[in-house]
Amino acid sequence: MSRSLARAVPWFVSGALLVAAWFVAGATPDGEERITEPFPVAAEIGTPAVGRNLGVTVTDARLADRVTFGGWYAEGTWLVLDLEAWVVHTESPGALSAATLTVGDRVFRASERAQGYDSSASLFSTGLSLAVPQSGSIAFELPADIAADADAAVVRLAIETEFLGDSVIELPVDISAVERVDELELAATEWITP
């Protein structure tokens, strides 16, 4: 009897180890997806937020029914952010390639429309400098009922286009509380020191 018990012990031990392994696997984070998860850096208006390479200070956020830049204009519902941006470590790559506004489950991409008219109309997709920060604006074209959307809104800015494995600056925005104007001239991209 003790002999068959002794023979069964390895089976019990293996079974127990398998169960334990199942618990351990359940507790560890999903490998594949975590390789590319970004590193969020919290930001607020008026304070510089610096990630691994991207540095940003958002100075203002306004909602406008009409935006203009020189001879270009567009009507609708536009969220315009005024900001200063620079890179900290390398200019290659060093462009503000990712700029999204997430409201609930909808994601909006910074508008490229004004830049087709004049490339200095937006800091979006603009190469940033290690030496001196640049100031400018980015604008999001939104549906008319966005101010009524009660979902939390977050602006995300990063160097890479897909937020893969690098820092992402995250700025919460309360769209319903932002200053609202009829018309707004977008700020041109320029050096902060002349």
Partner: peptide, 16 residues
């Protein structure tokens, strides 16, 4: 292109 400002290969934002 967009008919209004001739933006080339434009991006369509959700619900706009």
């Amino acid at each position: 292109v967009r008919e209004d400002d001739q933006t080339f290969n434009p991006w369509l934002q959700p619900d706009v």
